[in-house]
Amino acid sequence: MATGGNFLANSPKKGYDAYETYIEDPSSVEEKLFGHSAEESDDKDAPAVFFCDKCKLPVGDSLSWDGSDDKRNHIHLKRVTENVLVSKDARLHEDSKGSPCIIVDLVCRGCQTVLGMIYKSTPISMDHKRYTFCFMVAKIGSYELGTASQMLSGGGANRQPVTLEVRDDVERQLTEMKMMVLSMARHLEELEVKDKA
């Protein structure tokens, strides 16, 4: 699919509600994405990767963070991956009553889901949103680096990789042990024969 194509040609222009994702009880976007509120976060937060919630392609990361809009349940990023296509077709979008904006859609390259928008033209009160990648939290997921907790048992960090030298040494030791066990068994048989005689 070409980046410049009209991939929303079949979408109705009126009544298009992909961006009407207002929430009744607006908890913070950080809590929904990272599992903690903005008040709980500190400077030691690990970076997070954002991905399309439908096909799981990565679309950006928290190192490009440019803010959030809790009221509309959006996050804003300065940069995104090549998995995000920017529509060439601008359209009118009324963000709130009396605040018409011109936007273009952000679409996932993998599954063509509309993930968000870029505000091209806004009223003065919304200038802070202009020319950032605005994602709908409902359409993306996140993974915070360093949060994995599952480990394999049996050695952990001190376990050495098995190399050819280690394998040869283990095989040599097993052969020596086998020879010793055979020798002891032979010696035990000799002792049993002497006891019977």
Rank of each mutant, 00 (worst) to 15 (best):
E30L: 12
L8F: 06
H187D: 12
K44F: 13
P26Q: 13
S64R: 07
N73I: 01
I23F: 08
E189D: 10
N83I: 03
S27M: 15
T163C: 10
M177Y: 06
L33G: 11
M151E: 14
L152P: 05
S99G: 02
D45V: 04
V29R: 00
D169M: 11
K88W: 01
V107A: 03
S37D: 12
C108K: 00
S99D: 06
G116F: 02
A138T: 15
G146W: 02
D69N: 07
T81Q: 04
R109W: 06
A138P: 02
S121P: 14
L85V: 01
R172F: 01
L115N: 09
S153H: 06
P12F: 00
P161L: 01
T21S: 10
K129C: 12
S87R: 03
V162W: 14
A138R: 15
E190L: 11
N158L: 05
S68C: 14
F7H: 06
K97A: 12
F7T: 07
S99I: 00
S96W: 03
N10F: 05
N83A: 05
K194R: 07
K129I: 11
G98P: 15
G5R: 15
F51M: 11
D45S: 09
L33Y: 01
F34D: 03
I140C: 08
E189I: 13
E94M: 14
S27P: 08
G35K: 06
T163F: 04
G60I: 03
M117R: 11
Y19H: 05
L174M: 08
P12A: 02
A46R: 04
V86E: 07
D61L: 12
G5D: 15
M180L: 09
K14M: 14
V107Y: 01
A18I: 02
Y22A: 13
V162A: 09
C111R: 03
D95P: 15
L145N: 09
R130L: 14
G156V: 08
I75S: 00
E82S: 07
R159M: 07
M136P: 14
R130P: 06
E192T: 06
L85Y: 00
D53V: 08
R109T: 10
P123R: 01
H74I: 09
M117F: 00
K44N: 15
K14H: 15
V162D: 13
D168V: 05
E39N: 14
D17F: 14
N73R: 02
S96I: 04
K194L: 08
L63G: 02
S87K: 04
